[in-house]
Design a protein around this nucleic acid. Structure first.
Lengths: 334, 334
DNA sequence: TTGTAAGCGTTATCAG
DNA sequence: CTGATAACGCTTACAA
């Protein structure tokens, strides 16, 4: 015996009130006498009543739901980001509609359509494509949007300064006396990765240097990253330090190095980027540049909420990146 | 100049048709003459029309949305699970409403309420509490439910056989000649962890043994796991092998061991559980018991869809667990 | 302080 | 083959 969820009418009848009054107590709007309110509240809990969000949204023109479109959830970085955003949204009374584009532009477009259909009040997105069209689609519909981690031209963007992060990685190695620096990273077409690389190149150039090798790949899994570094090593590249454009790329490099009998950091230093938990799993633990991911998520939520409520944007910026010195970097052997 | 999204009426007027006809082409239901259909479709794309899902759901009594309630997204296991489930659901025409209970029963209840409000057609849940009340809440409302990873009494459950996994871990070590086996793991109150422990104990008992130590904790982060093992070692526990009830617990143990100058696997063997990507990050790579997480997610979706559509349940079971032998286990030194 | 009634944007049932 | 029209469950003026 399965019952349809109770409706506002059922509550009204059972409590001997009108649906308007019930609505008032649900939303805490307008006056309701204490006795009436008590009676209605009792019935509501008795009948396990939950106002139909779809109906409310339709009537109200607001869904209190925000779309969150990320490339993946099974990639640690985005898993954390999704988690932070979801929790922050919830704390402010919004629900997250989380979707994974799987790095596919088509998929991304389909999800944008779904979000439009759900009448989300706003969207937080780490867009696969840096083109403006998906953003335009949303803005045309009057849906505010904030880009996270990956910028979108013309949209409010919350992200770390990956370029600066690149400079930090190179700078740290340079400060340790390294001069022959190789770079590996993936996925190749991700803008954050590209920006970090640019930072690395510029910092090196400022010292009159350039990378002894740069190896980028599309696959960003562990095996792929290790193979990327392995290929480089087997091609005879001689480096006294390697920069992983992500922590995983760095860890892959460590494995490739280890398999070839070169000691980290005694023979070669390795530095990563992100400071994901995995950075501490390897022995010695990975030196890396920490990205303030939780603050980024929180700020993205702050901005979308302001956009949705019409408040002025926050001037706040995510905290700067910083080098976390651990065990995989050392002064260049003399 | 921001426009409200177009409605079905706008389309109807602009195409010189009735809303009923427009509805027909949207849903592909009933007959519509080709010419009319073409005209309407043009207008729909021109105006970027997206039918309001809330309204449709209200009218239809089906939202094509399923709630997915997990303890977290920033824990790799659940990140992967969420990803798999989301993609599988999407492929079948459903949208996922993903929520994180953060291991809090109260939070879980709030999300159940939210899902009820969204009128989800079904729920997939890895429940924090093994009690039946949250499930009952859903079933009372006629919402089908499938439990994933963590069983719920009376509900369709899709999970690995953690108990068997525990036996596998112990069995592998026993087969290698180890006799003094210690166990660490977290979070302590998670049923999968508890079940694995039971499997370990039983397999050991069958060999006339019992763990030389069992250290469980609530925190399941890296530091916490390492400290757990460190405490055990510092208390003078002598083991020739340690079982990590999760990969992270195992990795924490490896670090604790390493810090104390004991070599893995020469002096002590270590085995984990889950076969998360992290198992391959450590050197040597972690021997572990692989859990068929993607298949579990896919099967959970299969079952909830059957429940929602009234089809009989699938008899299929998730594939069995298996030991992935890598570098952290070795025969007991003579 | 509470009730009546008019929608919100769809879908589905009838007629035509 | 197409068009009125009645719900669906709620919020919100406007009355009482």
């Amino acid at each position: 015996m399965e019952f349809a969820l109770a409706g506002i009418r059922d509550i009204a009848t059972r409590a001997g009130a009108s649906i308007a009054t019930v609505s008032r107590v649900i939303n805490g709007s307008g006056y309701v006498s204490p006795s009436m309110r008590a009676r209605i509240e009792t019935v509501i809990t008795e009948m396990q009543f939950r106002p139909n969000a779809g109906a409310a949204s339709m009537r109200r023109g607001k869904s209190r739901m925000v779309g969150v479109l990320l490339p993946a959830l099974d990639v640690k970085f985005f898993g954390i980001l999704a988690h932070v955003i979801e929790q922050a949204l919830f704390a402010r009374g919004y629900h997250a509609f989380i979707c994974c584009s799987s790095e596919s532009p088509d998929r991304e477009a389909e999800y944008i359509a779904a979000m439009l259909a759900q009448r989300v009040d706003g969207v937080i997105i780490a867009s696969v494509t840096s083109d403006t069209v998906t953003a335009a689609r949303l803005t045309a519909a009057g849906v505010p949007i904030v880009a996270v981690d990956r910028a979108i031209a013309g949209a409010v963007t919350v992200k770390a300064d990956h370029y600066a992060g690149g400079r930090l990685m190179a700078g740290h190695l340079l400060g340790l006396g390294h001069r022959s620096i190789a770079v590996t990273g993936a996925p190749e077409h991700s803008t954050p990765v590209t920006e970090r690389l640019a930072g690395v190149r510029d910092a090196l150039a400022a010292a009159g240097l350039e990378p002894v090798a740069v190896r980028l790949g599309d696959e960003h899994g562990f095996e792929a990253c290790r193979d990327l570094a392995a290929g480089m090593l087997d091609d005879g590249v001689e480096a006294d330090a390697v920069i992983g454009l992500t922590d995983l790329a760095a860890i892959g490099a460590i494995h490739a190095l280890h398999e070839r009998g070169v000691a980290v950091p005694q023979d070669v230093s390795v530095i990563g980027f992100d400071d994901m938990p995995m950075a501490r799993y390897v022995i010695p633990q990975l030196t890396t540049v920490a990205q303030p991911i939780r603050e980024i998520g929180a700020l993205a939520v702050e901005q979308i909420v302001r956009l949705m409520t019409g408040e002025p944007l926050s001037e706040e910026q995510p905290p700067a990146l910083s080098v976390i010195e651990r065990g995989t970097t050392a002064r260049r052997p003399a």
